[in-house]
Design a protein around this nucleic acid. Structure first.
Lengths: 184, 184
DNA sequence: CAACGGAGAGAATGCTCGTTCTCCCCATCC
DNA sequence: GGATGGGGAGAACGAGCATTCTCTCCGTTG
């Protein structure tokens, strides 16, 4: 028997791949089981309902996504470079073969109206992202409004890249961000 | 008996209210029937499957949405004012009580991975929107890249307004748009 | 060794939903 | 008037799915 920790990891990995890749309602618990290799009994012991598994998936993805973004941005030499690096990181993300847009926007569109938990998780994710960008602009001595504007650009690039299937919106957003950054 | 044209209108109105308001998979054909007052038999005569009804809903919404935007923008005196008016129009839209983001982004997030028809309709809508904005910037003697940048801002504002439940992103996007417009 | 408790496989349950079918009514036409 | 055809209401069908239950197996403990 695999350890509970390993089982939980496998379940969350399967949930992330499947929920993100195909949508939450399109994936049944049976498919989570077969992909993770963890029996339904154990699955329900660890996550008492599909809704709780969805929340766990979203929470873990939120933390990881923002950590990866922060690690990339913080590897830059100056605050200005960190800001522009956000859009380089987006470009890399958009190019990943399984990229399908923002997991939070997608789950909000799918379930936001019926699940307040999903709606709230999406809201918290976007708020954290906006706060992160305003933190970067503050470090560069720029106003918080610039952070909001850059966040809107990034948000738009994510949606547009997902729907058009192109990574180009990241470059477009970066060019616009550069103009805003220099004007601020 | 109501005329086929009236029945079709009622069905599409019900579909739009329900699909947009709660998500496509969350709404059953039975609810379309009870809301529209059109019997299931006639419903299936006019739209042979739920998928076709979804496509009809999206197609009509695409046309109407872009018409309303264009009417608002074209009521302005100068090309520059038309461009900025796009964001005023967004602000009005965000303030509507049933606003729940972009119907195309939402349906893409929900069904884009499983339905190529939905994915394609969403893509066509975004492309038309981008083309409309680059047309506005061309009329103002500005490069097409400005149109793309403004479209990203608008797109980000829509998503952010939907998730946070605030109309404020329209104002933020307009402020950023003004900077980009004056710099271009 | 024998009882036990927890684990896996997967069947069973109960519900939802897309789609079709049945049955009945009524307006039209001979 | 009586046949007919199209329409409405809603039951029926079949599939999918979240969740639970059953049965069997095996490792542990006394």
């Amino acid at each position: 028997m695999i350890s509970p920790e390993t089982a939980e990891l496998r379940i969350l990995d399967a949930a992330e791949t499947l929920f993100y890749g195909r949508g939450i309602q399109a994936v049944g618990m049976d498919e989570i089981r077969s992909t993770s290799g963890v029996s339904l009994k154990r699955l329900y012991q660890l996550f008492p309902s599909k809704g709780e598994l969805v929340q766990a998936y979203l929470r873990r993805r939120d933390v990881r996504w923002r950590q990866k973004l922060a690690a990339y941005a913080e590897a830059q030499a100056t605050p200005e470079e960190s800001i522009l690096a956000v859009f380089d990181w987006l470009h890399e993300w958009f190019g990943e073969p399984d990229f399908r847009g923002c997991a939070f926007s997608n789950s909000f569109g799918e379930l936001g109206a019926t699940s307040s938990a999903v709606a709230e998780t999406a809201r918290a994710h976007k708020e954290a992202f906006f706060r992160y960008l305003t933190g970067l602009t503050a470090a560069a001595g720029k106003p918080a409004s610039l952070g909001d504007h850059l966040a809107l650009l990034a948000e738009g690039a994510i949606t547009t890249a997902a729907i058009t299937g192109s990574a180009e919106p990241a470059h477009q957003a970066k060019a616009a961000a550069r103009v805003l950054l220099e004007a601020a």
